[in-house]
């Protein structure tokens, strides 16, 4: 196989103009396709990087649980169907939720305190 390739490369026989043109067309198509794929990939990575930075920046607020945009709700504990108080007299505990809406595809990350 190797010998045949070497032979093919060393022989000096010509080709038709049509064959050369088709080859050139295929080669240029391949190179254009490769370039556009690399370009698209680069743009996706750049956009992903920006999203990631925004997401983690919002997560820092979430981590500290000091964000201003909070909403409140309640937390309760059960053992089977029986309610269990966290502390005596505290059947439910009021909590504040902190949201990060910067995650892609509409996903939400929530912490609470």
């Amino acid at each position: 196989m190797i010998n045949r390739i070497k032979e093919k490369l060393h022989n000096n026989k010509g080709e038709s103009i049509a064959e050369v043109l088709v080859s050139l067309l295929i080669s240029s198509l391949a190179l254009v396709m490769l370039a556009s794929m690399i370009n698209s990939s680069s743009r996706i990575i750049q956009s992903s990087k920006v999203n990631m930075e925004n997401y983690y920046s919002a997560n820092n607020v979430l981590e500290a649980r000091t964000g201003t945009e909070t909403v409140s709700g309640t937390l309760s504990i059960k053992n089977g169907s029986k309610a269990v108080h966290l502390r005596y007299g505290e059947g439910t505990v009021s909590v504040n939720y902190y949201k990060n809406d910067k995650a892609p595809s509409g996903k939400q990350v929530v912490s609470f305190k």
Binding site: V20, I26, A30, M33, L34, I44
Partner: peptide
Amino acid sequence: GASISFALLLFLVCAVVGSVVLVSGTSAA
């Protein structure tokens, strides 16, 4: 001659390399 063969080979290589680059980019997202 073998220009078409090598052109097709180049096309195949470019398609594979391009796909790998694109897939890695989208998987990062």
